[in-house]
Design a protein around this nucleic acid. Structure first.
Lengths: 223, 223
DNA sequence: GGCAACTTCCTCAAAATTTACACAATTGCG
DNA sequence: CGCAATTGTGTAAATTTTGAGGAAGTTGCC
């Protein structure tokens, strides 16, 4: 195993207890004790799961959950002090994957962590990147938010998204988009990429999904 | 009635029992016994409601629920064997409209299905778009007002209306209209669309029902 | 045959999108 | 750091696509 688990918890003893339990089960826990560093850390470190306390100094768990969901589908388990809280959270549709009430036994937490990972990992990245493309409707969405695209933009995103991480040269992209082997300038692709990025940024500012690779081309990738 | 209900359930006897009960109440149930085909099927067949088992081969119900919610608001009832509260909460959080615990009486299921449909249909425009097509008589109407159409126009409207939101290319429309693979100019389709729009505007000036999608084709959609 | 309704096509203008271009910003590398 | 290559961006031109008004061709019917 040895998957990274981020524990966001300001009570040091509790955090350490959780971390110890997770370590015993061959996870690699990391503790952050305030809300401010979370999103940045998640972006660079891509944990397999986040245990997120609701009450935090800096930024509260709800805000964080929403923020993280802007750019990532990483499983999140929310930790709350009171049972009543859960109903309220459910209503808000924050996108958390599970909820745990304090006081909890570390054993229980471990069970939940494993359950959530089991649930989310089998088919994770492939279709769980938050990007949905409906070819019949030419409708695209990111994390449920609608992304209005023109035909070329839709095709571009479709190609890149079909194989995340794979880098396509501008020429390859053009060949995929135009069945006739029309030749257009490389800047043209850049231009479409620009518009695509702009539209994505408009609805989901933190989702950096389309990356350029110097001297090679473009790729789709979370983070 | 005769609305399509999708049953996603891997236990054949149980699935058949549900299907029988639904049929008796004039629904049209369809059974899928594994998670992998679900999203595709839903996209093409647009059922009125989904009964979704939590435990499935292929993909589990929760993942499916999330996936379907990415592109559709179709009512979903989650069926679970585990009574524990947490599963219910999870199911609800994912955007399910109701949940049922096994073992259940088919009568109970039927009641839930009807209740959910009652709740969700008033504002589901699938059947509430005011468009009525009588194929036997080639008679069409919008909001009760008669719409006199020629054969080609009627076919066009029928195709587009059958799957609101889906975009059809001119070629697809031609192929649907002409069983012989006659080739007519793209402008021909435009011409029929123009006339269809005019006739619709004549009886219902505010109904912008047929939309063109630049570079792709035409679609039917309210608003 | 002649009429009326329908279908198909044509042309031109308007609308939307795509492409190009020039220049700015960034990156890789010594 | 500084240079060369590559990528990003604002803007405007070029192209493609669509809409509207017929005209011409078909079909069915009296």
């Amino acid at each position: 195993m040895n998957q990274k688990i981020l524990i966001v918890e300001d009570e040091p003893k509790l955090a350490q207890l959780l971390a110890d339990y997770l370590t015993q089960s061959n996870f690699s826990p990391v503790i952050i004790d305030n809300g401010l560093q979370v999103t940045d850390w998640v972006k660079t470190n891509r944990p397999a799961l986040i245990l997120l306390d609701l009450m935090l100094p800096g930024k509260d768990g709800m805000t964080l959950c929403k923020e993280v969901r802007q750019f990532s589908q990483v499983p999140i388990i929310m930790v709350t002090a009171r049972v009543e809280e859960i109903d309220r959270l459910l209503g808000l549709e924050l996108g958390a994957d599970d909820y745990i009430c304090k006081p909890f036994s570390p054993r229980e937490v471990l069970a939940r962590v494993k359950a959530v990972l089991r649930r989310t990992q089998p088919d994770s990245r492939a279709s769980n990147d938050g990007v949905v493309l409906d070819e019949d409707r030419y409708k695209a969405s990111i994390n449920g938010k609608e992304l209005p695209l023109t035909a070329v933009e839709f095709h571009l995103l479709k190609i890149l998204h079909a194989d995340p991480g794979r880098i396509y040269s501008r020429e390859q992209l053009m060949n995929h988009i135009y069945s006739d082997h029309r030749i257009v300038s490389d800047r043209t692709i850049d231009s479409h990429i620009k518009k695509l990025r702009k539209k994505i940024a408009d609805i989901s500012p933190d989702a950096e999904i389309i990356h350029s690779v110097y001297g090679v081309g473009y790729k789709f990738e979370l983070c």
